[in-house]
Design a protein around this nucleic acid. Structure first.
Length: 520
RNA sequence: UCCUCCAUAGCUCAGUUGGUUAGAGCGGUUGACUGUUAAUCAAUAGGUCCCUGGUUCGAGUCCAGGUGGGGGAGCCA
């Protein structure tokens, strides 16, 4: 690239300020180092929208203020060009961030040719190819900031409660719970698998440290192609000695409420950028309903109502609603097309309407997908047989009825992991709990009180057809001072997805890894 | 692995029962405009219609196979 124009890096202004700190410098002359996120111009005027990672702000260049030479220079600036802006900070409530910089001079670091991502709509495939650049856009900026804050809140919550953060191995010698497909690697000539859960190790460290939590990467080799799956994701797994199922549920509820409240209180601006509906945040103070698996099935099959709402009827209404919306959208499109065809419309208005039509067509595509899916979900819900595990659509059907997270506990033993503690009153059930997020999101927490009895565990390991020798060390935990204990796992990206209400889990992690993607 | 939808300009898309020279908006470029918020207005450049084969006088359009992608099921967080 011979065309790259740069100035000397050594010019970096020592007194430069970050956009996030502009409010501390009202009416002062400052230097802002930034990239161009958008540009508009008028006669003798340029509006440069800047971003520096800490925030966004508009700057204005007036020909009368800076003179011909600087003004001419400014013409070359393109999207994502880097520069330093020197000027006065002025309060202006109309602008993003509430401040504007009135430019005296600029120092161009690099002029960019053909930045690929415009301020227009793009498809997910294109954006994923350009993920390293996509991260610079405003929505992604907001998501990544929330991701960071949630991570901080998680650590704060547990640390302040006296939990110890412990790490578990990523290489494991056996495909422990047996069900999911794992990534196999070569470990000095032996097969090793990338961890799908640190839970068993978490139990060991809880026996050493009392209350612990892990926060690490997890790998699943399933060839899943849905908006809720990743091959590599992060998981939080607390484990507590001397906790039973009820204490576990209390902790889950307190924990989730803490995270949601923290984001609501501190990251409102980011939620606004994402146009997140705030109902969830307003309802989070309410108690989370706790229902048994048996009741969940009754709700799913429409045999039991929730606050006067019936699952099957609600879903049938959804389908009617979707169909009505499709008709509505088509009508809207027809009207706009007719208006354009009638003539006499200004070019700007035509563009506006054409754009609207594009948006509507996209909406119809999504609605049509829903229209195809809902009947399948209905079938699945009606035909659900007691004893099966809840599928993704079943969770959607159930949580559709609630305005807060719901906890489902007391599960049939055959569909849950071998280490869950049996229910003393009814040995066909185990003391597991799933927390389902509302608004149709589905499962984000899975947990349980653990089996404490050595011989029962051995029995369960055999029943699940698992290799006994791989669990010798785990059984030691029941031989040497077994105590009641419980814990849970929370999918970090699923949590972020729910909080930000982005449609795709791929947007919640900087560089997602999923079936078919390894770059960038 | 199965079901379903899709692939046309850098991007987002239109393209009628198969018909002659494939279109629009955005973005790029050039110019106009003194406060814009995806600014606006005028002009302009930009194409292996995913690949292979078939039907046809004629294929972006129809058929078969392949490749790539979206959504869902299974599995799961």
């Amino acid at each position: 690239m011979e065309d790259v124009k740069t100035t000397e890096i050594s010019k970096t202004a020592k007194n430069a300020v970050w956009i996030a700190d502009l409010s501390k410098h009202e009416n002062e002359s400052v230097c802002v180092q930034a990239w161009i996120s958008n540009k508009r111009s008028g006669k003798g005027l340029f509006f440069l929208e800047l971003r520096d990672g800490t925030g966004f702000c508009q700057s204005v260049m007036d020909l009368n203020n800076v003179g011909e030479e600087i003004f001419e220079n400014c013409k070359q600036l393109t999207l994502s060009s880097s520069l330093r802006v020197f000027g006065k900070v002025v309060k202006d409530d109309r602008q993003i961030g509430g401040y504007e910089v009135q430019i005296d001079n600029i120092d161009i670091i690099q002029i960019v040719d053909n930045y690929p991502i415009s301020n227009k709509e793009h498809g997910i495939e294109f954006l994923m190819e350009k993920r390293h650049l996509w991260l610079r856009s405003k929505r992604q900026w907001a998501i990544m900031r929330i991701r960071s804050r949630v991570k901080y809140a998680i650590h704060t919550f547990f640390q302040e409660k006296g939990f110890v953060q412990t790490d578990t191995p990523i290489f494991t010698g056996s495909a422990c719970e047996g069900t999911t497909t794992l990534f196999e690697t070569d470990y000095y000539g032996e097969p090793a698998y990338l961890s799908q859960s640190g839970q068993l190790y978490g139990e060991a460290t809880a026996m050493a440290l009392g209350k612990i939590y892990t926060f690490g990467p997890t790998f699943r080799a399933e060839k899943s192609k849905t908006r809720r799956h990743l091959s590599e994701f992060w998981m939080i797994e607390p484990e507590m000695a001397f906790y039973d199922l009820d204490m576990n549920m209390d902790l889950i509820e307190e924990f989730v409420r803490y995270i949601v409240t923290d984001i609501y209180e501190h990251y409102r601006f980011e939620l606004e950028i994402l146009e997140r509906d705030l109902t969830l945040f307003e309802n989070i103070g309410k108690e989370f309903p706790r229902i048994t698996y048996d009741d969940a099935i009754k709700i799913l099959k429409g045999d039991k109502d929730v606050e006067g709402k019936n699952a099957i009827k609600t879903l049938e209404n959804d389908l009617v609603e979707v169909k009505a919306q499709i008709i509505e959208c088509n009508k809207d499109i027809d009207e706009r097309e007719a208006a354009i065809a009638a003539g006499g419309m200004k070019k700007g208005a035509i563009n506006f309407n054409k754009n609207k039509i594009d948006v509507l067509k996209n909406k119809i595509k999504q609605l049509e997908e829903k229209e195809r899916n809902i009947p399948q979900w209905l079938e699945s819900a009606k035909n659900f047989k007691h004893g099966e595990d809840l599928g993704g659509s079943d969770e959607t059907v159930i949580t559709r009825l609630f305005s807060t997270p719901v906890m489902v506990y007391n599960w049939p033993k055959d569909i849950k992991a071998f280490y869950m503690k049996r229910n003393e009153e009814n040995p066909d059930y185990v003391k597991g709990v799933d927390m389902l997020a509302p608004e149709g999101f589905g499962e984000i927490v899975g947990g349980a009180e653990r089996e404490t009895d050595h011989d029962l565990l051995v029995e369960r390991i055999k029943a699940h057809d698992l290799p006994m020798e791989a669990f010798e060390w785990y059984l030691d935990l029941r031989k040497f001072g077994t105590v009641p204990h419980a814990g849970f796992g929370l999918g970090f990206e699923r949590l972020i997805m729910w909080l930000t209400n982005v449609s795709h889990i791929r947007e919640t992690i900087p560089f997602p890894r999923y079936y078919g993607r390894l770059f960038p």
